[in-house]
C-alpha cells in the first residue's frame, strides 16, 4: 500500500532526485546522500541535532516527512564549507570553543546562520530565544553565546 515515490529537490545547490517512501524522514533522506551532519538524537524535534534548512527555514529533520521536500531547496551544514573555507559562524565556534562532543554542533551552526540572517546584531535575549530549541548536553552554552556574538561582529 505504501508507495515509494520519486521526488526532485535542490540539495546544497545541486538538483537531485531519489525514490523515497512516505514514512521516511528528512534525516534518512539526507543519509542517502552521505550527509551525516544532521543527526537524529531525541527524535522529537527538541534537541536540534537534526536541523536542516528547507526553503530558507530551519526545520527538525527527524519530524519532517522526506516527501515534503519535493520541489523544495534543502541546505545542510555541509554546504557552508563547500568551497573549502569555513563560514564566519563556523570559525567563531572554533575560536570560542563552542562545543565539546560536537554532536549537536551542526544544528547550532545552521541555526546561528539563520539567526544572523534575521537579526544581524542579536541581543543576548535574541540569541537565547532563538537557540533555546537546540540543546547541548555538554553544556557549551556560554561559549556558544560568545561565538554567536563574535560571528555577528564578523558579519557572519
Amino acid at each position: 500500500m505504501s508507495v515509494a515515490r520519486t521526488i526532485h529537490f535542490t540539495l546544497n545547490g545541486r538538483k537531485v532526485s531519489t525514490e523515497i517512501e512516505p514514512h521516511h524522514n528528512l534525516v534518512e533522506l539526507l543519509q542517502r546522500f552521505d550527509l551525516f551532519g544532521a543527526r537524529e538524537s531525541c527524535g522529537q524535534g527538541l534537541c536540534g541535532c537534526c536541523t536542516a534548512v528547507v526553503d530558507g527555514q530551519p526545520v527538525s529533520g527527524c519530524l519532517y516527512f522526506a516527501v515534503m521536500v519535493d520541489g523544495k531547496s534543502v541546505t545542510t551544514v555541509e554546504a557552508f564549507d563547500a568551497d573549502g573555507a569555513l563560514s564566519k559562524v563556523q570559525q567563531a565556534f572554533i575560536d570560542h570553543g563552542a562545543f565539546q562532543c560536537g554532536f549537536c554542533t551542526p544544528g547550532f551552526v545552521l541555526m546561528t546562520h539563520q539567526l544572523l540572517q534575521d537579526k544581524p546584531n542579536p541581543s543576548d535575549d535574541d540569541i537565547r530565544d532563538y537557540l533555546s530549541g537546540n540543546l547541548c548536553r555538554c553544556a557549551a552554552y556560554p561559549e556558544i553565546i560568545a561565538a554567536v556574538k563574535a560571528a555577528a561582529r564578523a558579519g557572519r
Binding site: Q31, L35, F36, G37, A38, R39, T76, V77, E78, F80, D81, L86, Q90, F93, I94, D95, G97, F99, G102, F103, T105, P106, V109
Partner: peptide, 21 residues
C-alpha cells in the same frame, strides 16, 4: 589551543559510530 578535531565538528564531518554504514 582549540580542539584538534574542531573543524570536523563544525562542518558536520566528524566521524561517529552513529554515521557508520
Amino acid at each position: 589551543i582549540p580542539r584538534l578535531e574542531a573543524r570536523s565538528k563544525v562542518t558536520g564531518r566528524a566521524e561517529y559510530t552513529h554515521n557508520l554504514r
